[in-house]
Design a protein around this nucleic acid. Structure first.
Lengths: 198, 198
DNA sequence: GTCTATACCGAGATAGAC
DNA sequence: GTCTATCTCGGTATAGAC
């Protein structure tokens, strides 16, 4: 794997510091602000170490993406095995930092093919998990006209969540409450009233 | 206005060529590939002319954004005054190049405040137009439980459209057909079967 | 592993000739 | 209005000392 280039030590402190710095800069200033010098400065190390550990900037981006995606995948898998899987997923999906980071990678992917295929694979993995869960939950219930198919439900939740978070980042909120109410009315019909917070 | 800096001539061929080049590069390679030199090369002019016409790169980005947003606004306003406004809006919103361009600007806005406020203002203008139209159309119909509020309907269409287009750009299509069917079932309930193409 | 030093490139921006 | 020339900065990446 390209992201495992550099020394064998996968769990070096320096390596982690560089990944943390990369993620922070992407969240605060966007991916275009990520450079070997800025990352090194933020991590408190020398810029040559970025190349020592990751080879090239593309590999640094990919390693950062994978670390974040793996964390989110575990959190969502946990949510989906709770008592109210759809409610829990809905809350997990609303994670602001993760969505912001994902959108930076999506933008980055427009002109970096290695990142692009990484995101594609990851997205398919998430979609698969979501659909398996939703299919089980909705089993036999799809007769009712106002309950969407598992596919529509998952894509509805994903689309709305990401779009609203994106708009919030711009200070926009017109109609958000009504949109959320619409989704949550659906969740209530399927899983009943939400019991406890996360 | 910052975007009107440079010579008084708003309709110069060179100016248009620079805007066209900027837009093309953003679509093909992402905003990070936009530089005065690359734009000038693509437009077939000298790079100093970019600064002569637009002052700074930020102003070039803003001018490019405004030109695209104004075009789209006119097209959507036209769609909303047709016989089946929601169907027409749904089709117009699915414009692939415009969505791709918008997403580049959204990514760009993360670290350029001038762009950010430009997008915010533009989005509010679109939302306002959409909501006024949807409110008129749904007037009195919101009693039915499976028809969403005007706000939810507009945000649903906007969210889903953008999300699906984004995924398509990555080669993802799992569940898309079902999601589209869900939205269009809603449109059929409100406006009936779609009559003619755009 | 970590550093210094450096090669090389392309970015934004401006001055001034034509 | 359009060009050449140039300044300055910060980027990627590598060689090599410690």
């Amino acid at each position: 794997m390209a992201s495992e280039s550099g020394p064998g030590a996968e769990n070096s402190e320096t390596r982690t510091a560089i990944l943390d710095a990369t993620q922070q800069i992407m969240l605060e200033e966007g991916y275009a602000a990520v450079s070997s010098r800025r990352v090194a400065e933020r991590a408190g190390v020398n810029s040559a170490l970025v190349y020592y550990y990751f080879g090239a900037m593309d590999d640094l981006f990919i390693a950062t993406f994978r670390r974040g995606a793996d964390r989110t995948f575990r959190r969502q898998a946990e949510a989906l095995s709770s008592e109210q899987p759809l409610w829990a997923l809905w809350e997990t999906i609303h994670d602001i930092p993760h969505t912001a980071l994902t959108m930076e990678f999506v933008a980055l992917a427009n002109h970096r093919k290695a990142i692009r295929s990484e995101i594609t694979q990851s997205s398919q993995r998430f979609r698969k998990m979501h659909l398996e869960a939703a299919s089980t939950i909705l089993e036999g219930r799809h007769a009712r006209p106002d309950v969407p198919s598992p596919e529509a439900l998952i894509l509805l939740m994903s689309s709305v969540s990401r779009f609203l978070l994106m708009e919030e980042a711009f200070g926009l909120s017109t109609g958000h409450a009504e949109m959320i109410a619409h989704v949550e009315r659906l969740l209530r019909e399927i899983e009943g009233e939400r019991h406890a917070g996360p």
